[in-house]
């Protein structure tokens, strides 16, 4: 197996390490399966680029990058942006759901404390 530089080997091993860590987090139920998907995809793609020099050179040429290392960083950055955006979307939805739950809880508590249900008053 041919490597361009020591950095490529480090990146490839780091990607494998990340994949193992993500799997371990899922196994320990610290990370949900759905959230692990993007992380796994990122580590698999980066590991593939790290271990396969012809693939790395091909993609570097296609993207018009000057250096192979830039390709690895660009791909890594793209995944980081994707993960952050995905989390922002999730968080926005959670915020809305959280608000609904708090509001429902407030109204239910009010009803329980008053000992009656809706429909009174006018």
């Amino acid at each position: 197996m041919e490597f361009i530089s020591r950095t490529q080997i480090i990146v490839a091993l780091a990607a494998v390490g990340l994949a193992v860590f993500v799997l371990e987090l899922v196994r320990r139920r610290r990370l949900g399966e759905e959230f692990s998907v993007l992380w796994m995809a990122a580590s698999v793609v980066i590991a593939a680029l790290g271990f396969s020099t012809p693939l790395l050179r091909l993609i570097t040429r296609i993207l018009g990058m000057l250096f192979e290392s830039s390709t690895v960083f660009a791909v890594g950055l793209a995944f980081a942006v994707a993960v952050l955006l995905y989390l922002s979307v999730k968080l926005s939805r959670l915020t809305v759901e959280h608000q609904i739950v708090v509001r429902e809880l407030a109204l239910l508590r009010h009803e329980v404390e008053r000992g009656g249900g809706p429909g009174e008053g006018a």
Binding site: Q99, V102, R103, A106
Partner: peptide, 22 residues
């Protein structure tokens, strides 16, 4: 009572919900 602070918009929404239900 909201258990946590949600903002004036959400407080109003709670009020609307109450008004409609009643």
């Amino acid at each position: 009572r909201h258990a946590v602070n949600l903002g004036v918009g959400a407080a109003l929404q709670t009020g609307f919900r109450y008004a409609v239900e009643h």
